[in-house]
Design a protein around this nucleic acid. Structure first.
Length: 422
DNA sequence: TCTGGGGTCCTAGGACCC
DNA sequence: TCTGGGGTCCTAGGACCC
């Protein structure tokens, strides 16, 4: 049996932990640049019918009218709170698969317990007691069914955030309850196609001939079909696999026209991804840089382009990566446009001990010690304390807008929660 | 004026090899 | 006139996830 634990509107919950005055009140969290909604708690959803990813400018007035509190995103805080939740889960089972920042699968096979329901309730209560973050727990024989159980635990009130599917009868009941949109892995496109052939519930989906599912929805669809019928075919992954690609791209706080500012942003993103690359002890073979204008803007001329460069000897050295990225950027940069975004991608990642030199260049040409020192300094004194001069010092010209960010309560001495004596 | 960012997996098709 | 059969590797694009 597999348990799926998923935090309730995680980002909003993290904010509320440190703001008791907001308990029971509507809260939303905004994306980078405060562009759109990425999390909303129950109260905010009930009050305003907001959809996720709704652009902020469309609903700001409505939020203010309804006294909804909004926060810029504070990933430092959410990342650290996530770590706390995951640490607790690991006390419940040695086999925990962290699936995303706010959810995890737990292998509960062989765990000694009186009943699965009591066990799930214990997990739920422990997490909220120790971290303040509320969660839902679903337990079922396969991952897809556990996801479904989790959804039911939250959406059907009488379950009160705990749902166990451990008999065939309960499984069928759950499948008949679930619309296709409630199934993990059935996205918009598949939902529409299933609707066309008269399939609306998860149960109806499982009654389709396997051959049709395989042909129309590939092996991915077949796995869903089997998992929903109780046959486990998505592997449990306790050890996180190393990443196959590492990239970053962020919209600028304001639009940029000149190459130098874009180069600075690009160099900064390289320093970010290179650090992630070194942390997983890999080197990159290819580097891709892309730029784009604002596709929503009718007033602006549109342009987007990308350039991929093969690095002669794969590396994770920030300075070498920066040089290549700069070359790539210069190839695609065209004057006369208002750029909204630059992005970088590192691919062809290989373990650093397998890097092969070539006839002209040895893989050991660059000293790793410098990178180690840079990583250590930035870890100790904060992000971007030292780095490439190309990043410049005018970060504010392209940096993200985060107007309403809360304190980084758990990672910065200067931003600790203060208690006042009334 | 303002519309996120970071990923994975799968397939088809092209280019190439012997 | 007849024009093989078995592969690999890479990329782009689609679909999905949170």
């Amino acid at each position: 049996m597999i348990a799926m634990v998923d935090c309730n509107s995680f980002y909003a919950s993290c904010e509320q932990v440190f703001r008791p005055d907001l308990w029971g009140k509507p809260v939303v969290v905004l994306s980078n640049n405060d562009g759109c909604i990425i999390a909303a708690n129950k109260e905010a959803k009930a009050m305003t019918h907001i959809a996720m990813f709704e652009p902020m400018f469309k609903i700001k007035a409505q939020l203010i009218k309804n006294k909804v509190t909004f926060f810029s995103s504070n990933y430092t805080l959410y990342g650290e709170m996530s770590q706390r939740v995951m640490n607790i889960l690991e006390t419940f089972s040695p086999n925990v698969e962290v699936y995303s920042i706010d959810e995890a699968f737990i292998d509960v096979t062989g765990i000694v317990h009186t009943s699965l329901k009591q066990y799930a309730t214990l997990i739920k209560d422990t997490i909220v007691t120790h971290t303040g973050v509320p969660v839902g727990v679903g337990i079922a024989p396969t991952k897809v069914l556990a996801k479904l159980a989790n959804k039911i635990s939250k959406k059907v009130e009488k379950f009160n955030y705990v749902c166990v599917i451990d008999t065939d009868e309960k499984r069928i009941k759950a499948l008949k309850w679930a619309q296709t949109k409630d199934v993990w892995g059935l996205g918009k496109k598949h939902q529409a196609r299933l609707k066309n052939i008269g399939v609306f519930t998860a149960y109806e989906f499982t009654q389709l001939p396997l051959a049709w599912v395989r042909k129309e929805m590939t092996v991915v669809g077949e796995r869903l079909w089997r998992e929903l019928r109780g046959e486990s075919c998505i592997e449990f992954q306790t050890m996180p696999k190393s990443k196959k690609a590492i990239g970053t791209s962020k919209s600028f706080g304001k639009k940029l026209e000149d190459l130098p500012r874009i180069e600075e942003a690009c160099a900064y993103y390289i320093s970010e991804v290179a650090e992630v690359l070194r942390a997983q002890k890999s080197c990159a073979t290819y580097i891709q840089v892309y730029v784009t204008t604002n596709r929503y803007s009718n007033a602006d001329k549109q342009y987007s382009n990308s350039c991929t460069i093969t690095i002669p000897v794969p590396t994770n050295n920030t300075f070498i990566l920066t040089q290549h990225a700069r070359k790539a950027l210069q190839r695609i940069y065209t004057p006369g446009y208002r750029y909204k975004k630059v992005g970088v991608n590192l691919t062809g990642l290989i373990p650093q001990q397998y890097v092969q030199g070539n006839l002209f260049q040895s893989p050991a040409l660059y000293d790793k010690r410098l990178m180690n020192v840079i990583d250590a300094l930035n870890h100790k004194f904060g992000k971007a304390t030292v780095g490439s001069a190309l990043v410049g010092t005018r970060v504010e010209q392209w940096e993200l807008v985060k107007k309403d960010r809360s304190n980084r309560y758990t990672t910065q001495w200067g931003e600790l929660l203060e208690l006042k004596n009334k």
